[in-house]
């Protein structure tokens, strides 16, 4: 059942999927990779973003991508708030390892169950003019519901990358985990910088969530599946490497797409987690780490 056409389709679909994964895992690369905060609730915030887009779209017919953008500041402040609680309760007391993890696990669970209580476990989707078309380029199909999120993802990715690498605060975020001394020399308050970084991390989930619900219908508990993707990408990228995140996201997207094309979609969830387990076991410093 192997054919070149099938493979080409899988590669293109995988690239589009990978671009989207880059958007989903970008925030985690910042919070986990740069700030060393193991936010396992990250995918739950993505799902929350999806439901915000769903609500605005189904009730007022607003565009999901615009909704995602509009809610980015709201999510940013939610992130700032969550970091304050995390810092005061765990980080300041050097107690991140056990209780900090349990905290984020609890947050993830509360978001998931909260969404189930409000929206139930039915799959939800959004309406937009760019969903549902399918371009044909030779034998390769390019569904617009994948292509548009791909483009938006890359734009968001580029914007965050530019911010982190070009601005004073952005550089401070990149430095905060590795080099406290440098940060002090820059006269930046580490807590404020981490708060900003974590806020950005959560901020990205509003748009990432909107993109997710454009790609596929969602229900509250699928957030958990994305834990595999986002952490696989973060680890594979070499913690904290932003360009590495993009490459790792593309690698994972293509791998998943190829596996589900040739072995069946029920195996797809195992790809991310399998890669994650292998990476942890054999190359914890990531593809791009030293």
């Amino acid at each position: 059942m192997f054919s070149v056409d099938l493979l080409l389709n899988a590669l293109v679909a995988g690239t589009l999927l990978g671009g989207f994964y880059a958007a989903v895992s970008l925030g985690l690369s910042v919070s986990f990779g740069q700030l060393n905060i193991v936010n396992i609730a990250h995918p739950a915030f993505v799902i929350l973003g999806s439901y915000v887009a769903y609500m605005g779209n189904s009730r007022w017919g607003l565009d999901p991508i615009l909704l995602g953008l509009a809610f980015t500041p709201v999510f940013f402040f939610i992130g700032v708030g969550v970091y304050r609680v995390y810092y005061e309760s765990f980080e300041r007391k050097d107690d991140e390892a056990l209780r900090g993890l349990a905290f984020f696990f609890g947050v993830m669970f509360i978001i998931e169950v909260g969404l189930i209580m409000v929206y139930g476990v039915d799959f939800r989707s959004v309406q937009a003019p760019y969903i549902g078309q399918n371009w044909k380029l030779g034998g390769v199909g390019v569904p617009t519901r994948m292509f548009v999120p791909f483009c938006v993802s890359i734009l968001m990715f580029a914007a965050v990358y530019l911010y982190l690498s070009r601005t004073f605060n952005g550089r401070a975020i990149m430095a905060v985990a590795q080099d406290r001394l440098a940060l002090q020399l820059m006269a930046a308050d580490p807590v404020r910088i981490k708060q900003l970084g974590f806020g950005i991390g959560i901020g990205t989930t509003a748009l990432a969530g909107a993109l997710l619900i454009i790609i596929i219908p969602i229900e509250p508990s699928i957030g958990r599946l994305y834990i595999g993707q986002v952490f696989a990408i973060a680890v594979l990228a070499g913690l904290g490497s932003i360009p590495g995140t993009l490459v790792a996201a593309l690698v994972l997207g293509i791998a998943e797409s190829v596996v589900s094309t040739f072995f069946g979609p029920s195996w797809a969830p195992a790809v991310a987690f399998g890669i994650l387990l292998l990476a942890l076991a054999f190359r914890p410093q990531g593809l791009f780490g030293r």
Partner: peptide, 26 residues
């Protein structure tokens, strides 16, 4: 496989393990 690494990697790996196993059983 994972305990030679930092503790958080063990935690993430256990999360992954549950889902890999579920996929296998499915």
């Amino acid at each position: 496989l994972t305990l030679r690494l930092r503790g958080v990697f063990f935690a993430i790996a256990t999360l992954a393990l549950a889902i890999v196993l579920e996929t296998l059983v499915v």
